[in-house]
Design a protein around this nucleic acid. Structure first.
Lengths: 170, 170
DNA sequence: TCGGGAAGGTTGAGACTTCAATCATCACTC
DNA sequence: GAGTGATGATTGAAGTCTCAACCTTCCCGA
């Protein structure tokens, strides 16, 4: 059951053996990599991978600041999740909130110097971890292929149509 | 910072532009797909994706039962996480625990009829969701490539050596 | 300009995960 | 057969995420 291989009239198209293998491999790889990087960063930077990603986005943004919804969108998460995360990072002194002059509802998340420093200190170790787990194991063709595939999947999950169920609009 | 493109003496090999794009695409796709399937299953089956996966493993196992550590290993998660999860699924009546006769420390997680029924009822919708998000969007070559790549990554993250930091041995 | 819906963001409760500590049993050795 | 370390599994607390409810401000048409 689940992804079984069967065949009958009005039944859904179950995954065949190869598809099941591919899907299992996907689940295994993503689960393990997620766990691996979360652990690496928790140990070396004191925060989970997704939080680290937030700091990276802020560091790359003009003025090292981003509107909350924009940051949520770039990170593919909900605004609620982001609110909680920023609250935690603020407590650490790595991010600070600033009001938006042009829209009084708006808030900026701003990377502090301390936040930048954490990034500066831990980025080398993290990029190494990513290389070891991913890039170092794949041929250039596989890297290219992976990029294309992941872009297709990501695109498919964020349709342009109005009313789409996107995390940052939830 | 984070995956910046720089060059100097003893600095780590930062990700180049294409690598950064690939990595971003990977993060976006996995985050969105995880969210998407979690939501689909929470809505239709009343449990998160990983819990659903546990039921699927049990359904496929002989006697519809698996030792805790074995189930954790197949699911790539920690035993602690599994303990909590099984406790919840037990409360739902979808899984029951049984002692292991040959090793009094051991426990079996056993899929109940009610658990099997949930699977029977929700599997079609789930496999459809997976197809729509993943397989339907990829060419056969891309599917093959994805499977190979993910197997490489998964393999790389579970080294055979003793002392490896594997979730289910934590 | 008033009213109502949409957009930006936060909050608290409950659900889930992590981490370290714990307990019981097993396997091995002397 | 007693001691010791390893294995199988659980627990509770703290951290994180989801969901729904909420508040404020903006937008826009009547």
């Amino acid at each position: 059951m689940g992804y079984m291989n069967r065949a009958s009239a009005d039944e859904p198209r179950w995954l065949n053996d190869e598809e099941q293998r591919t899907w299992q491999a996907y689940l295994h790889a993503t689960t393990l990599l997620d766990d691996h990087l979360d652990r690496q960063l928790q140990r070396d930077a004191g925060m989970p991978h997704i939080y680290y990603g937030l700091l990276v986005k802020l560091a790359a943004a003009p003025q090292r600041r981003l509107r909350m919804t924009e940051l949520a969108m770039e990170s593919k998460i909900t605004r609620s999740r982001l609110s909680h995360a920023i609250a935690r990072l603020e407590k650490n002194g790595w991010v600070r909130r600033e009001e938006c002059p042009s829209d009084k509802r708006g808030q900026f998340a701003v990377l502090t110097d301390a936040g930048y420093e954490v990034l500066r200190r831990t980025a080398p170790g993290h990029v190494t971890a990513v290389r070891q787990a991913l890039f170092d194991r794949l041929t250039p063709e596989q890297q290219k292929s992976l990029g294309e595939i992941m872009e297709i999947i990501a695109e498919g999950l964020q349709p342009k149509e109005a009313g789409a169920d996107l995390p940052w609009l939830r």
